[in-house]
């Protein structure tokens, strides 16, 4: 085991996969000479030469390039600097990457990874703090993962790179400095589609994604003070969903809180709530409580931003509403 930061764990995964497979290459804005604005690709250009490339600012072109490179047999890893710019990538994702395998009857595979980071909490404003998880998770043919721990960041990035289908890899700007144990000796890729039981409890299940898992853990601490045992589950994979983990937990606790940093309306929490009703209706003892970002642009001022983006207090309040 080694302690490392989330960004370092991602860097390790990229190095390992590039060393393992010559067809893996990394490109995006400022990823080579500068080492990435969040330092995820630091040192890769020195180690792997022109397999790490800086590009102009044109996310639409970059995503189309990733699609064609993947079709031609490479395994591109594209970095989109902010998830806020995902809309520029959407045509290539929705009309190309996600459908070619299907419309050409499996003759084409699409092994590419789009890494990006979203989320707020540090006053980056309405154009650099969004979580557009639902926008990509909506698309059949795309896998969407969002690891929280450094160990998962490494294992799931490796799994994403090896996956024959396009994977949207969602990071969070407040996770990059998070430190955690990473089992360096075990370099097996993770499994996309498996949730992680963060904390076991019998009273209420909190299903969260990305940084909201950390807030859910704080909420669980708060609830424990009132004798409420909250079960916290890190979904890790937004699509495909670990339905077994979700239904098993709801069967146990009969109460569900779903948390995602995206907007509430038509958001990822809406999908989770509907899924729980579809799959576990007879196990519910209360309506599923949704915790999501308010339906408005993210304010620049951090005091206002805190009112808009969910936190531990909002999650704990939702759990108490469910248990009322």
């Amino acid at each position: 085991m080694a302690m490392m930061r989330y960004a370092e764990a991602l860097n390790l995964a990229l190095r390992e996969e590039m060393a393992r497979d010559d067809s893996v290459f990394v490109f995006g804005e400022d990823v080579a000479a500068y080492g990435g604005v969040f330092k995820v690709t630091q040192g890769l250009a020195e180690a792997f030469g022109d397999r790490v490339r800086d590009t102009p600012i044109s996310e639409q072109t970059l995503t189309a390039m990733a699609v064609t490179a993947a079709m031609a047999g490479s395994r591109p890893v594209l970095e989109i600097m902010y998830a806020d710019f995902l809309p520029l990538s959407l045509d290539a994702l929705i009309n190309q990457a996600s459908v070619y395998h299907y419309i050409w009857n499996g003759q084409v595979s699409m092994p590419f990874v789009l890494r990006t980071q979203g989320g707020g909490g540090v006053g980056t404003g309405a154009q650099h703090a969004k979580s557009l998880d639902a926008m990509v998770a909506h698309v059949p043919g795309l896998k969407v993962v969002a690891p929280v721990t450094p160990a998962d960041a490494r294992a799931l990035l490796k799994a994403a790179i090896r996956d024959p289908h396009p994977v949207i890899f969602l990071e969070h700007k407040l996770l990059y400095n998070l430190r955690g144990e990473v089992p360096e000796e075990d370099d097996a890729p993770g499994e996309i589609g498996r949730a992680r039981l963060v904390r076991e409890g019998g009273d209420v299940s909190i299903f969260a994604t990305s940084r909201m898992v950390l807030e859910a853990e704080k909420a669980a601490d708060d609830l424990a003070g009132d004798g409420i045992a909250a079960e916290v589950i890190d979904l890790r994979s937004l699509r495909p969903l670990d339905l077994g983990a979700i239904t098993a937990s709801v069967a146990k606790t009969n109460h569900a809180v779903v948390v995602n940093e995206g907007w509430r309306f038509c958001g990822y929490t809406a999908e989770l709530a509907a899924t729980i009703m579809d799959r576990a209706f007879d196990d519910l003892d209360a309506p599923v409580e949704r915790v999501a970002t308010r339906d408005m642009p993210i304010p620049y001022a951090e005091t206002l931003e805190r009112e808009v983006i969910p936190d531990a207090a909002a999650i704990a309040a939702a759990a108490r509403r469910a248990l009322a």
Binding site: N254, F281, D282, D283, L284, D285, A286
Partner: peptide
């Protein structure tokens, strides 16, 4: 009971 006599109970309570 809601208007009309429907019992309001959670799904697990009903089960």
């Amino acid at each position: 009971r809601q208007p009309g006599g429907r019992v309001v109970a959670s799904p697990v309570a009903r089960r």
